[in-house]
Amino acid sequence: MADLSVDICGLSLKNPTMLASGVLDETGKTMASIARAGAGAVVTKSIGREPRQGHGSPCIVELGDSLVNAMGLPNPGIDVFGRELEEAKKAGVPIIGSVFGGGEAEIAEMARLMADAGADAIELNLSCPHAKGFGAEVGSTPERVESICRAARSGLDIPMFAKLTPNTSSIVDLAKAAERGGADAIVAINTLKGMVISPEARMPVLANRFGGLSGPSIRPIGVRCVYEIRGAVKIPIIGVGGIESGNDALEYIMAGASSVQIGTAVWKHGPEVFSKVCEDISEFMNRNGFDRIFEMVGVAHEVKH
């Protein structure tokens, strides 16, 4: 019988699936309901120092099973988010607090405040592709990724993950920089910067014009990124991007991810997607003689063509 539990940087998860940041995770009760539906951990919406409305509407475009979003990091600010975090923790799974900021000092402060608010680990959002002055705008060069990670890591006594952008010529260099800066794990990938134009309206649909593509259409890119990163760093990798099924999660795991995050799939498949993915993984393991998740992590690298 397969055992799905995993250990990520000292956090014990009953299974390797987490809710990805920004999807159904702005309020405590919603996060708790996703946890109860089967997620092994929940990553919060990315939270900043001050309340922020985010971009105007339209902030989302549906493209089949994929999405282009430009929410623009709306969030109530860290001062009041603690209440939501407390509520989320009632569900009994680790809550990973995602934070963003405009530079290393602010991000380091945010990480510390999120830890004080009760998060079990911190995820640094160095990768949102559509918020001016934040996210990928501070996380696109190895130098900045390293200095931000170093600054944030120094004041923290809980695990810290660095979530990286694929909108770069080398995500591997960013991952190496995050490792040098002291990140305990890499999260890859955030959305791909994109645009949708309505020919009839003759303009981009998103109010922000640019957005981030997520869902099944980015999965091959995410899997490739994780595969490349696995060859370059020693710290664990958390794979995210387009996972809808156990098979999709296994692609990431075999590419080198110790656990996975699921975001967009919750839209089409509901919160049940977590238990469904776990069932699929479990069946696969039983059929293929795997007892623990770690036995499968990175195995795709061993195969010689």
Partner: peptide, 17 residues
């Protein structure tokens, strides 16, 4: 309401949307 499709959590009420 922002996304309208149940992913952004803006229109949450007691964990429902």
């Amino acid at each position: 309401m922002k996304c309208g499709i149940g992913i952004c959590d803006s229109c949450a009420i007691d964990g429902l949307h």
